[in-house]
């Protein structure tokens, strides 16, 4: 990293490192440290899921201990989804809960010394593209072509599509702004923590915990909530046709 201005001290490190080269149809791509971190996060979530599955096989009427925790998580997520999506909630609660748990675990993995997988633009762009596809597919499913065309020409009447390019650009901007918001928030936390540990490493004793609580826990949780909330809002909007309302 000789090109970076900031890195006059060598121990500042928040970059993505290429670890293992892999030959992929003739091009060399790399297994990076964000792949490793994403695998660790996924293993933790999978482990929790397997344990919960085994434990809930003999679930009791009156919840106790671990069963309580699982029920609390499921209830909270279900309440959040049904509060925003209304009658569409049962169809999307699984997906929204999945990305909520995944993004939350990714964001707070910075506490455990990993590089958060959401601080890699690839991860957040993939999540945002899934949201975009959900919006498009649900729009095509629930709204007629005439209605979609009227919405595209929105402030002007449908026979005068002067405004259409601007509306199309604003719909393409949805996944970009969703992904950049999550990415930049997590990345800013990662950069600031790297600067604290790199430049102030001889006085960085115990007090960076406060910064971890803010940048990893608080900011990570808020951004997770925002991402899921916006996904739910967009999908609900796409599902709702003006004819049923």
């Amino acid at each position: 990293m000789n090109s970076a201005i900031l890195l006059s001290a060598d121990n500042i490190d928040f970059m993505i490192h290429e670890l293992i080269p892999v030959n992929f149809f003739g091009t060399t791509v790399y297994i990076t440290n964000s792949h490793i971190c994403i695998a660790i996060v996924m293993l933790v979530i999978l482990g929790f899921g397997v344990v919960a599955h085994i434990k809930l096989k003999h679930a009791k009427e009156i919840p106790h201990g671990f069963q309580n925790v699982v029920e609390l998580i499921v209830e909270l997520l279900g309440k959040m989804v049904s509060g925003t999506m209304g009658k569409w909630a049962p169809r999307f609660v699984n997906y929204i809960s999945t990305i909520f748990v995944f993004i939350l675990m990714s964001n707070i993995s910075g506490i455990f010394g990993l590089r958060p997988p959401t601080a890699d633009y690839g991860t957040t762009l993939a999540l945002a593209i899934i949201t975009f596809m959900m919006i498009r597919v649900n729009k095509a499913k629930h709204q007629s072509a005439k209605e979609i065309w009227t919405n595209v020409c929105s402030p002007l009447p449908p026979w005068l599509p002067i405004w259409a390019p601007i509306n199309i650009i604003s719909e393409i901007a949805v996944p970009i702004s969703l992904s950049l918001r999550l990415f930049a928030n997590v990345l800013s936390g990662t950069v600031i923590m790297a600067l604290v540990y790199g430049l102030l490493h001889f006085i960085a004793l115990a007090w960076p915990a406060v910064l971890h609580v803010y940048f990893d826990l608080f900011s990570g949780a808020i951004q997770t909530y925002v991402f899921c909330m916006l996904t739910m809002t967009y999908v609900t909007q796409a599902c709702t046709s003006e004819n049923d309302a």
């Binding site: 930049a184 928030n185 800013s188 950069v191």
Partner: peptide, 20 residues
């Protein structure tokens, strides 16, 4: 507030791109 923060973070992303 988290949605309003986005525009500022675009500035941050541009700054990081310029630096690195």
């Amino acid at each position: 507030q988290a949605v309003a923060e986005t525009t500022g973070l675009y500035g941050l992303v541009v700054a990081l791109l310029l630096l690195f």
